[in-house]
Amino acid sequence: MGTVLSPDYPEGYSNNMNCVWLILSEPGSRIHLAFNDFDLEAPYDFLTVKDGELLDATVLGRFSGAESPSHLDSNTNILRLEFQADHSMAGRGFNITYSTFGHNECPDPGIPINAKRFGDNFQLGSSISVICEDGFIKTQGAQTITCELDNGKVMWSGPIP
């Protein structure tokens, strides 16, 4: 598990940046990214996430502005993050945490705020349930999700609650 921060986060990054991070995990495992905070000057500054270490690796996503995915999973044991900023204006930057998981397991879905999670096994075929504390309602995702094989990829059966 670890964290990737843009330079000088959260004070804002400098102009004319070109940064590359490689996240390496054990062979046979995969990498899960959680975007905790994201603010880049759209559309001129952007973060590209690639599946593998090579320059021409498959692009999993290219992100700019204040919108970012909440989660992203690699298909290999290496992720390449490329951050580019132009000559003017800058945002707050980004704060991304990563964790690793095996080929026959789903990424840790975490525990939502004001909720309880039942189930700590993320292996293929296992399920977890999330129940909100009194006074709170579920705003996204299913109450129960199962780790399953979908088109050759191991993933949760629905959005993480």
Score class of each variant (00 low, 15 high):
149 L>A: 06
98 Y>S: 03
145 I>S: 06
116 K>S: 10
38 F>T: 03
118 F>S: 09
51 D>F: 07
104 N>Q: 14
46 F>Y: 15
149 L>K: 13
113 I>D: 12
36 N>T: 02
155 M>N: 07
81 L>M: 12
123 Q>K: 12
161 P>W: 01
18 N>L: 12
20 V>I: 14
60 L>T: 04
30 R>W: 02
151 N>L: 05
141 G>C: 04
66 A>D: 15
55 L>W: 07
109 P>T: 02
65 G>A: 07
99 S>M: 09
15 N>R: 14
27 P>W: 09
158 G>C: 07
28 G>S: 05
82 E>K: 02
122 F>L: 04
154 V>P: 03
107 P>M: 13
69 P>W: 02
65 G>C: 08
39 D>H: 11
22 L>I: 15
30 R>F: 04
102 G>D: 06
3 T>W: 13
94 F>T: 03
149 L>W: 07
135 G>A: 08
146 T>K: 15
1 M>Q: 09
17 M>A: 11
50 K>A: 06
52 G>C: 03
149 L>T: 01
93 G>P: 10
5 L>N: 14
104 N>T: 08
79 L>E: 01
78 I>T: 15
88 S>R: 15
131 I>L: 09
36 N>C: 02
34 A>H: 06
106 C>G: 08
68 S>C: 13
28 G>T: 01
103 H>S: 14
119 G>D: 09
84 Q>E: 13
5 L>F: 13
90 A>H: 11
149 L>P: 03
128 I>S: 06
31 I>M: 12
117 R>F: 02
75 N>T: 12
120 D>E: 13
17 M>K: 12
82 E>H: 14
57 A>L: 04
38 F>K: 12
75 N>R: 12
104 N>L: 15
82 E>Y: 08
74 S>N: 05
132 C>H: 07
112 P>Q: 01
81 L>T: 01
81 L>E: 00
151 N>F: 00
83 F>Q: 04
93 G>T: 05
120 D>M: 07
131 I>S: 12
11 E>N: 14
20 V>L: 10
28 G>I: 03
66 A>H: 05
28 G>N: 04
154 V>N: 03
3 T>E: 06
52 G>R: 15
47 L>E: 01
10 P>G: 08
68 S>T: 09
37 D>R: 15
114 N>M: 04
110 G>Q: 04
108 D>A: 04
22 L>E: 07
89 M>T: 14
52 G>D: 01
157 S>R: 10
6 S>E: 01
107 P>V: 09
137 I>T: 14
3 T>P: 03
80 R>G: 04
40 L>H: 02
98 Y>Q: 07
110 G>D: 01
159 P>A: 14
106 C>D: 02
19 C>D: 11
21 W>M: 06
69 P>Y: 00
60 L>R: 11
126 S>M: 10
161 P>Y: 00
57 A>Y: 03
28 G>L: 05
44 Y>H: 13
75 N>M: 11
137 I>S: 13
116 K>A: 10
3 T>F: 11
32 H>D: 08
142 A>T: 00
2 G>P: 10
